[in-house]
Design a protein around this nucleic acid. Structure first.
Lengths: 165, 165
DNA sequence: CAAAAGTTTCAGAATTGATTGAAAATAAGA
DNA sequence: TCTTATTTTCAATCAATTCTGAAACTTTTG
């Protein structure tokens, strides 16, 4: 496999992985392309490389910037905007976790909070109230743990990893 | 909010959460329904409660059993099959992680392995090789960590949680 | 200020993934 | 064995998501 083939394969794999992570396929492919680009790329470059439309490129670049996975880089004397990827994997993972926590876990916590108001009126609903209580407890722990994780630096990961092994 | 409304709301929320977790909406709803059911349910019960077709119910129940989130229960004297949900949240999370690891992380590791064969031939591809190396290192760590996590019992989670707080 | 360069928006098209429902297969009872 | 209850399969349909491309908008420059 030569370098060119390797790069293409990497972009495809990264895209496939991303699509299971709330990062859409194209979004992940753009990130992959920028990761392995030796220098920053313009929207035009990205469109050409990945053979996607202008609108698609724009939307996904913006989403990546919202997530903090890609940064804008302005070159003096250049009118175009250029983009670079966040390359620290620990940082990438943290940013994805932060987004998904906000988008998924937090609404669930809110719903569970509301469900806690339900009172068991008969033995049948007793089970329901208990299940909700358990899940709420668990989710709150998970939420707190993820908060710490998102705040922590990459050493934390290394430390936990070492402890486990 | 009465118990009935609460149950419906719970099923909807669980379905929404699940759909971002590789567990399809219906799959998660079935799991939710079984979680809060005071006793095991038949495929027919599930179809009626969630207003889904026979085929859909069947496919998703089977998927849930494959994942280890739902168990079959045979009642003596009954020809139908009944189902119950795994209710230990830590166990549920572990099983989801195990599935996703297999389906997503492992193929990525395989791809990275192949990409490691690529050799840098010029300064431009030097960066590519370096990025692949970094990601591979990180992914291997993540993989090992997740393996430990999947094997661990719920005390592990509590312990890590306590350490962080 | 007008023209050129670049970016953003969004309605409709295309794609992908989920669901239905009826028919085929399987298992249990008579 | 034949009949009936139950589960499984799968092509067709439906729903949701993603992508395109042209038009509108914004910014820069002469």
């Amino acid at each position: 496999m030569n370098v060119q083939e390797g790069k293409e394969k990497f972009i495809q794999s990264w895209g496939a992985l991303g699509s299971n992570w709330g990062v859409s396929r194209t979004m992940a492919q753009i990130h992959a392309l920028l990761l392995i680009a030796p220098h920053s790329l313009s929207a035009e470059d990205i469109m050409e490389d990945l053979k996607i439309s202008r609108g698609n490129a724009n939307m996904n670049i913006r989403a990546l910037m919202d997530w903090g996975l890609v940064y804008k880089e302005l070159k003096t004397g250049e009118r175009k905007e250029f983009f670079v990827a966040e390359k620290d994997m620990w940082d990438v993972v943290k940013k994805i976790i932060a987004q998904r926590k906000k988008k998924e876990l937090e609404p669930m916590l809110k719903a569970l909070e509301e469900l806690s108001a339900v009172e068991a009126s008969d033995p049948d609903s007793e089970n329901f109230v208990q299940v909700v209580r358990d899940i709420k407890l668990f989710s709150n722990k998970a939420n707190a743990t993820l908060d710490k994780l998102v705040q922590s630096d990459s050493n934390w990961f290394v430390k936990v990893f070492m402890n486990m092994i």
